[in-house]
Computed example of a mutant assay.
Amino acid sequence: MNYIYIVECSDGTFYTGWTNNLEKRIAMHSNGLGAKYTKGRGPVKLMHYEEFEDKKDAMKREYEIKKLTRKAKITLISEVQKNK
């Protein structure tokens, strides 16, 4: 399984990424090992994720989300949480 995810860093900023092991990747970000951007901004909180069978589809979606404004990301997160 492939995942895209949005985490909120301890400074309130968002980071969007792709992984095939969500739990491990979130732990890495929280421990300063996940990505250059999140290093020093942990711990992180998982705000949103989506599952994909195909890596290519996941990476395409990651790119789409990275282009969104902060406001649009907040709306995406809110809408998904509302529907849970």
Rank of each mutant, 00 (worst) to 15 (best):
N21P: 09
Y63W: 01
K39E: 03
T16H: 08
K36L: 08
S30N: 14
R70S: 03
S78A: 15
M1Q: 15
L68F: 15
T13F: 08
I6T: 07
S78H: 12
K56E: 11
N2H: 14
K45Q: 08
V80L: 13
V44Y: 04
K55W: 13
W18I: 08
M47G: 00
I65V: 15
K56Q: 11
K36F: 08
K24C: 03
I65G: 06
T16N: 10
L22D: 02
E8R: 11
V44C: 02
L46V: 00
Y49L: 01
T69R: 06
T19R: 05
N20G: 10
I26Q: 08
I6C: 02
K84M: 10
F14Q: 05
I77D: 03
N83Q: 11
M28P: 01
N31R: 11
K82Q: 09
E51P: 03
E50G: 04
K39N: 02
G40W: 07
I4R: 06
F52K: 06
V7R: 07
Y37A: 02
E62V: 14
P43V: 03
R61E: 15
K66A: 12
T13S: 13
K39Y: 02
T19G: 06
G34S: 05
K67E: 14
K55G: 14
Y37I: 04
T69G: 04
G17R: 13
I74T: 13
V80M: 14
A27R: 11
P43E: 03
H48R: 05
L76P: 07
I4V: 15
I4H: 07
L68H: 12
M28F: 01
Y37M: 02
T38K: 03
M28N: 05
E23W: 03
A72C: 13
L76F: 08
K39M: 01
Y63A: 06
E53S: 11
A27F: 07
E53D: 12
I6A: 02
L22N: 02
E8L: 03
N83H: 08
Q81P: 01
E51S: 02
A35Y: 10
N31E: 10
I4D: 05
K67W: 12
N20V: 13
K84T: 09
N2W: 09
R70H: 11
Y63L: 03
A58I: 12
L33H: 00
K71L: 00
Q81F: 09
Y3M: 05
V44I: 05
G12R: 15
F52H: 14
A35C: 11
A27T: 12
A58G: 12
M1E: 14
T75K: 14
E62T: 15
F52R: 10
H48C: 01
C9M: 14
M28Y: 04
G17S: 14
I26G: 04
I77P: 05
T75V: 12
K36Y: 08
Y37P: 01
K67F: 10
I65P: 07
K36P: 00
L46M: 00
K24Y: 09
K66P: 13
K36V: 11
G17H: 13
T38L: 06
G40C: 02
D11W: 10
S30Q: 13
D11P: 02
I26M: 10
W18H: 12
W18T: 04
Q81R: 15
D54E: 04
A58C: 11
